[in-house]
Design a binder for these strands. Structure first.
Lengths: 193, 193, 193, 193
DNA sequence: TATGAATGAGCATTCATTCAT
DNA sequence: TATGAATGAATGCTCATTCAT
């Protein structure tokens, strides 16, 4: 308690402020102040404001990836596995609203170098890609171009989390929860799926 | 008479620079210089950099809304009408890549006041809402919560344009074009749809 | 009425704004706007903002000088003549509060070139000087250094108008009115005065 | 340890430049440059140019108030005490010509918020008020309205310092020095005074 | 590791003034 | 005489970053 890990305090504060005010509207001085450290301290831990941002982006993406990877199941029923994953992903978003908001805001923003953003996306999407190919092979998923499907998948995920973030409580209602997965699954399945 | 229309030059340049460098990384001086006007001229036409941004956002949204409204058909076949609209929307995005990119970047960005963003979104989404209710009534569209469907719709649209913008040429290939609509439609249809 | 003399409108507006906001805080654009003319029009009538200010300063001083000169009497009783003048001067200030305020603010301000200010002061003070010498000669006024007396005179005048401007209504009360002259006169008189 | 006291350098330079060029004609850049610090340093110590000005105004007023309060005597002879004070006040002005000039220029200027100016004036004038009431009680001072007397007092003080500042050397001449007090005293005394 | 005063390039914005109509 | 769009130098202020302690 006497040493509340200043580095972590900086990261937490930066996350909050970047989300609520935007990257450019948040000065390093304000982060330091709100985190209870001196301005110089921020630069001891992160070489620059940009690096702080990148660090945040990468570690949040990693946290998310870890969370859903843990939830991967292999029941032999692809649809059930997909549903399990879909729910786990949205669950994470709802439990980590700040981080999800961060993701929504900065996944497409020029505030983060394209290289970093792509790296983060790929590690998640490639994982989805594997699942899709499995679905193709089983004849459960339609034979659409793979990367189109990935982008669609990502788009639906962002839309769903946006919806449940903006309408807290709806996630508890099975109607809404199940509808979100139904749309996701129907978009890609074949008539067999 | 010569009407060099400096105001339009400023808007065009701002659009290009905001998209390629981001809002904050683009100085008003650089906009003026590239547009061939004096710095003061920018502020003669727009009270502030923020207002210039808002003006851009609102007018581009309007342009888009106008473009798809023109494409509305009523053939008696809802699916065909929806397809027509879907293609028209993506067509517009492909023909106006800069404006579409602008939309992708700033639809969720704190660089634009929430109020302005919501206003822009609503005018488009409410229009989709009407179509969906019609689909519900005809038993063609699944009975999911309306605003969840709207968000999903928007998410798929963003994903599709992202895909076709990043992969120019794919739009010419019927496979991709049709697949994009198929996913969109299947996400929402009933077994009758 | 159809031609409300734009030049005069500019002067009137400038006076009001210079007094209420200060010279530097008043833009030529705001003067023009409030006067109901175009920005260019101001510069047709006055070569520059500074010249407009100088014009204002000189003409107001002239107006004041004219007003008190008109009130000069020669009753053979110097004290009565002085009182008459003192009352006339303060009366003018009370009837022209905007112009008096202008004087208070700019008589010492670097917003107006020293040369202009001195010229304006001298024409009034030299007139006072003549009166004082007369008083000396008659043995009614003390034999203090002349320019010290002039400065004192000016200082008391500014203080008195400040007081009556800040406390409107007091001028109607003989106690206050007479006290103001009494102080003025007693400051300079001899025991015979 | 070397303590270059940059803050003081900024204050000193600002005082000099505000007096010689005026507040608006003095850029923050020029203050910083002449003070030998970076532009940012000025804003590190003062949140804005206006606050720098206010700080200057308030601290100079305080310095003056301190100086004359130190000179207060109570000999039992009110006139002598008043003379002592009058001389001390003018003495301070002559020893601090820059600060006195600053006072003359900005005591009535809209460059400083009315609130700040009044606060500064009151702390000094209320002190004078106490003396005057004592004079009334003793029958030495005329029974004029108190605030009229205060304003008169202030006006004579400004006029006197103006005179001795513009005519350096005269302060050494007893004639002038004594005349300045005589006018001041006679303006307010009764025949007993 | 931590501090915070100091830096100075960079930015949005203002505004007196000009000039083609 | 009147207009108001256009100009661009000048200004107050911000902020990421450095460094002596």
């Amino acid at each position: 308690m006497s040493k509340p890990d200043k580095k972590q305090a900086i990261l937490d504060t930066a996350l909050t402020l970047f989300v609520s005010q935007g990257f450019y509207a948040t000065s390093t001085a304000s982060i330091a102040k709100k985190a209870g450290v001196a301005t110089g301290t921020l630069f001891h831990h992160f070489p620059s404001k940009d690096e702080l941002m990148n660090h945040l982006f990468i570690s949040i993406k990693q946290e998310f990836a870890d969370a859903i990877l843990t939830s991967v199941t292999d029941s032999g029923n692809l649809k059930q596995d997909a549903q399990h994953l879909w729910y786990a992903a949205i669950q994470w978003a709802i439990e980590n609203p700040l981080k999800q908001e961060f993701f929504q805001q900065y996944s497409m923003s020029p505030s983060i170098p394209l290289e970093i953003r792509e790296q983060a996306m790929n590690s998640i999407l490639s994982f989805m890609g594997a699942l899709m190919q499995k679905g193709h092979a089983l004849g459960l998923l339609a034979d659409y171009p793979l990367s189109l499907m990935q982008d669609n998948c990502h788009g639906q995920f962002l839309a769903a989390t946006r919806y449940f973030l903006d309408n807290p409580g709806k996630w508890q209602e099975p109607t809404h929860k199940e509808a979100s997965f139904a749309m996701f699954w129907n978009a890609m399945r074949t008539d067999n799926g």
